[in-house]
Design a protein around this nucleic acid. Structure first.
Lengths: 115, 115
DNA sequence: ACTCTGGTACGATCCACATCGAACAATACC
DNA sequence: GGTATTGTTCGATGTGGATCGTACCAGAGT
């Protein structure tokens, strides 16, 4: 079940942790800001740098949100020079919770997620 | 989208509130206890009395959880003599968030949801 | 070397919430 | 009437989390 060392690209600094349990996952996704981040990530095919998200929080708070998403197994981040590219772990999520991500993305976005 | 008054049965003491927004809904379902309640409700075809749930909390806390679920639009409750029968608003949920409920119920239950 | 730029880490603050016990309300039963 | 039974409501409490500012760190560019 563990990834054979020969197949695991050694340069991944952060071995993707398992996707979290369902309540942890829901908790991670229950925050409006994080939901917005999820949508942004889902709507872009390429990994996105943390700084290029338009959310009304400071960068430290943003960093916190990314940590929560990462620890819940929702996203993956790899360093690229001075910035960090974030991408959705769509495949893993679909494997663990089939249909969940799709149904969330299909849901109408929260208008004015600021409050 | 609002229900025409002529079609809305006036005798419903609790006019089923609209299902909440996605983050509120996720927040409501993120709690392990409430997820357990959801599963119990989903697995029984008939409405269930509040007291007959086997969760490790006092009845006041249980009442609180039911209130959260009710206000999020997840459940519906109607009085029956001395007890209150709770049922899942499966249809409304499926209408608002297609696939969400199914994917949640398909997810593996959190083992020992007690803590 | 210095200086941006992008991001993390740490402390502090504030607020929401899960929990409890106790008091209360309403129905059923004797 | 009284007494269970079933739930709700109301403090009070503790904990977790969302937020911020500041300090810090690592690359990239000059």
């Amino acid at each position: 079940m563990t990834i054979p060392a020969a197949l695991d690209h050694g340069d991944r600094s952060e071995v993707a942790p398992p996707v979290a349990g369902i309540s942890t996952l829901l908790q991670a996704l229950a925050d409006p800001i994080r939901l917005e981040l999820l949508r942004a990530l889902a709507s872009s095919s390429q990994p996105v740098a943390c700084g290029s998200f338009q959310v009304p929080v400071t960068k430290s708070t943003l960093s916190h949100h990314f940590r929560v998403l990462r620890e819940a197994g929702v996203i993956e981040q790899r360093c690229d020079g001075t910035r960090k590219l974030t991408s959705l772990r769509r495949h893993d999520l679909d494997a663990c919770y089939p249909g969940l991500l799709d149904s969330l993305l299909r849901a109408p976005a929260e208008v004015g997620a600021s409050h």
